[in-house]
């Protein structure tokens, strides 16, 4: 039996599309290129096959996503994951939250931050630096106008450099995008009973 998940978890679920994904055997050359399908790599997720319906967007979004989350310099990998978690919690994207909470916990070697966020959401108490990062990401995800000069001041007071603040703006905004694909176009599901 397959259940749709409604609660946050670090255990990454499966993703079931609400539209029919592109069939790999029907994919055009342009789609295959964007899917990065090669003879040695033929495994493509339903999520990416779904996005292949709009191949021009997919082709530009994948490298952009990787640059924002993984390029060197600026904010740490774990803090960019925290930037991703703010919107994923606001937008209740269970799948995105699971993937990025799991990465955060593994990068930090510690589950306490994501445990607190999943248990208490915006009311969670974090270290001053994590709190400033999460608050900014959470508020700007709710509505851009919710994040204020005080939130920006809190980031600087917590010791973030201008480069790190820019990376936070980019990583949290990126999940305004990712959540609206993942949470809107499919359901997070798990096989079997709890």
């Amino acid at each position: 039996m397959t259940r749709v998940l409604h609660k946050f978890t670090r255990s990454v679920p499966q993703w079931r599309p609400r539209v029919t994904p592109v069939r790999l055997e029907d994919a055009t050359q342009e789609q295959l290129a964007a899917l990065q399908v090669t003879p040695s790599n033929t495994k493509v997720s339903d999520y990416v096959l779904t996005l292949a319906h709009d191949v021009e967007s997919l082709a530009v979004r994948s490298p952009l996503f990787n640059a924002i989350m993984y390029d060197e310099g600026g904010m740490s990998r774990a803090e960019r994951e925290l930037g991703a978690l703010g919107p994923s919690i606001v937008n209740r994207c269970i799948y995105c939250a699971a993937v990025h909470a799991d990465r955060h916990a593994k990068l930090e070697g510690d589950t306490s931050v994501t445990d607190a966020l999943f248990a208490r959401g915006e009311k969670a108490t974090l270290s001053p630096r994590d709190q400033a990062i999460f608050n900014f990401a959470f508020k700007s995800a709710k509505a851009p106008s919710e994040a204020t000069a005080e939130d920006m001041q809190a980031l600087r007071a917590a010791g973030l450099s201008e480069e790190e603040i820019l990376d936070l703006i980019l990583s949290s905004a990126l999940f305004g995008w990712a959540n609206r694909l993942m949470h809107v176009l499919g359901d997070p599901v798990r096989e079997g009973v709890e």
């Binding site: 996005l51 979004r61 995800a141 106008s145 994040a147 936070l168 949290s172």
Partner: peptide, 22 residues
């Protein structure tokens, strides 16, 4: 999917712009 990509991209771009203003 095309519609979702459009709305989702705008959510991103709007927040990048508002963050840069802040």
């Amino acid at each position: 999917v095309r519609l979702c990509e459009l709305v989702a991209f705008l959510a991103y771009q709007i927040r990048v712009v508002s963050g840069l203003r802040l």
